[in-house]
Write a protein that binds this DNA or RNA. Structure first.
Length: 160
DNA sequence: GCCAACGTTGGC
DNA sequence: GCCAACGTTGGC
């Protein structure tokens, strides 16, 4: 199967690229939006490429890349009453919400800012550039993936 | 911190 | 099943 590409948003105060670098890999849990969750469950597979995007900061930007280390599976934080992501509707039998695991790959030598994305002819159609786009997990076209890596200073795609 | 845009909830 | 009210996201 061919590799797909995605953009994952995170507020760095909650979970940053550096956090992922330190941990090596981590669950991408806590997504509580049906559209995003359906992608996590059905479409996002081990080996896929992920643009790691920092949101809700002064200069929102793609700051690094990660790789999906495990395809979609139930987000068990949903039925943990201790978790801030607890959802009383969810259970091990009826998970409701899904997550993937991601592994750190690289930091971009130069972050690619939202402003750059909006101003770059090859990237203006990216979902993240659209006003009011709140989807925290978004599909990325292969040519967009390549353009972001090039802008970010990565000459050779580490995922091949 | 503000507020527009969006998704969800719940009364009817 | 409509839609107003509400909560959340995220750029600014």
């Amino acid at each position: 199967m061919s590799r797909n590409y995605w953009l994952f948003k995170s507020e760095p105060d909650a979970f940053s690229l550096d956090d992922l670098r330190v941990m090596g890999h981590e669950h991408w849990d806590g997504v509580r939006n049906y559209q995003a969750c359906n992608m996590l469950r059905d479409d996002i597979h081990e080996g896929d490429g992920v643009l790691f995007y920092h949101s809700r900061i002064k200069e929102p930007a793609v700051v690094g890349i990660a790789q999906v280390a495990r395809s979609g599976y139930p987000d068990f934080t949903a039925w943990n009453p201790e978790s801030k992501y607890f959802d009383p509707r969810a259970s091990a039998e009826k998970p409701v919400w899904y997550m993937v695991d991601v592994a750190f790959v690289a930091q971009l030598p130069t972050p690619v800012t939202l402003n750059q994305i909006k101003g770059h002819p090859a990237l203006t159609d990216m979902m993240v550039a659209r006003k009011g786009s709140r989807l925290s997990v978004q599909p990325v076209r292969p040519e967009e993936w390549r353009a972001v890596l090039a802008l970010g200073g990565i000459g050779v795609d580490p995922l091949g």
